[in-house]
Design a protein around this nucleic acid. Structure first.
Length: 246
DNA sequence: GTGAATGTTAACAG
DNA sequence: CCTGTTAACATTCA
């Protein structure tokens, strides 16, 4: 369940643990569990698809990958989840399953450039445009998934944003007119926040226009599914109304 | 039972 | 050493 907006929802669900002291840490993640005990959580942030549990001198980075899940206060018994990390507080607990947990040295602000995070208030569209132009030969479908360019974008967002912008995923970056590129970047951010809004209401799928769709809602032609690019992820697009710049 | 999927990275080949 | 491909991991749903 992990594109940027879903991680923002996760952050909101655990932010009440900010300022709280960890009494016990458990799980099979390869990090120093005992060293977390008695530490107070300084902040909880997100960067792209990662949740960051921040301390003065280190940052715990949790990435849900494809199948990661979490539960708050109650451990999911009965399910066969692999408990990677469980944090226990005086009041409440949080559990992360089947995810990637890493311990990073230093504070989050020194490790991540938050202007690259599509969901961050400080996100910079001009910087994103420049980064796209720095990889002129790349197809836009791959570039959108590049976390160094758009931290937080996943396969749903890229397909929906390209559909809104009427750009074919196999378009070559340098062939896309600058105005179209700017429009795409804007759609990407806007769809990410629509994703957030709809996901909260549990109606994300209801609003898909291209992703896993059969027919184009604009022109009624079939939506094509094709594994593309070096990222080899399935793209969904309308060949009739999404222009291929190549 | 099979295959696919909102993802990344370690391992290997050249 | 660098680049590109494959494998691995983990879970749910159709």
């Amino acid at each position: 369940m992990p594109e940027g907006p879903s991680i923002v929802i996760l952050k909101e669900a655990v932010k009440h643990f900010k300022g709280k002291k960890i009494l016990h840490a458990e799980g099979i993640a390869k990090i120093d569990m005992p060293s977390l005990e008695n530490l107070v959580i300084k902040d909880i942030k997100t960067f792209g698809k990662q949740l960051l549990v921040c301390f003065p001198e280190k940052t715990i980075r949790i990435h849900l990958l494809m199948f990661g899940t979490y539960s708050i206060d109650e451990e999911e018994k009965g399910r066969r989840h692999t408990l990677k990390l469980g944090l226990h507080f005086a009041k409440g607990s949080v559990f992360f399953y089947a995810c990637s947990v890493k311990e990073l040295k230093g504070k989050a602000e020194d490790i991540f450039d938050f202007s690259g995070d599509i969901m961050n208030d400080g996100w910079s569209a001009p910087k994103a445009k420049k980064k796209l132009q720095d990889v002129p030969k790349t197809i836009i479908g791959d570039a959108l998934l590049n976390q160094d360019i758009f931290a937080g974008i996943g396969n749903i967002i890229r397909n929906e944003a390209l559909f809104r912008a009427k750009i074919h995923p196999e378009s070559i970056n340098e062939k896309i007119p600058a105005a179209r590129l700017t429009a795409l970047i804007k759609h990407t951010q806007q769809y990410s926040f629509d994703f957030l809004k709809w996901k909260k209401k549990d109606e994300l799928k209801k609003h898909w226009k291209a992703y896993h769709q059969k027919m184009c809602p604009r022109c009624d032609m079939p939506i094509r599914k094709k594994v593309i690019g070096k990222t080899k992820r399935p793209a969904f697009f309308c060949e009739n109304c999404q222009v291929k710049y190549s």
